[in-house]
Design a protein around this nucleic acid. Structure first.
Length: 113
DNA sequence: ATGCTGACGTCGC
DNA sequence: CGCGACGCCAGCA
């Protein structure tokens, strides 16, 4: 079965599907993949996203609190915050304001094939 | 080859 | 209600 697909690959596809102006959390992706307890691995996938040739908008992925917990891992920490601001998000203290409104739940937006 | 850490989240006390 | 510990998977020393 293809269910053995790489966990990272699934994460990459979901993250790529995040529409501009929206953000999601590691846990949301993990749950969508059926691994709510593997939220850490989702973050790890983001780390690999830089290695991947695919352009993964990792800046659109934040923690449950809407905090840019992974900004420090970007080429430039300010890049994540800057990009989100360009998409119309308001960042205060490295935290996305109005996070609930811009939150994008894959399990709700993406139709299961 | 083995063990620890790491971009989180949930459960337990 | 607040703090602590565990779990998950993969990369790296």
């Amino acid at each position: 079965m293809d269910s053995k697909r790489d966990f990272f690959q699934d994460v990459f596809e979901v993250v790529e599907l995040i529409p501009k102006g929206r953000v999601t959390s590691y846990g949301a992706i993990a749950k969508y993949l059926g691994a709510a307890k593997s939220s850490r691995v989702v973050g790890w996938a983001m780390n690999a996203s830089h290695k991947s040739q695919l352009q993964i908008p990792a800046h659109r992925v934040v923690n449950r609190l809407g905090m840019l917990s992974g900004k420090m891992h970007f080429s430039n920490p300010d890049e994540m915050e800057n990009r989100l601001k360009e998409e119309g998000h308001l960042i205060v203290k490295d935290q996305i304001q109005n996070f609930s409104s811009v939150f994008w739940d894959p399990s709700l937006e993406i139709e299961k094939l």
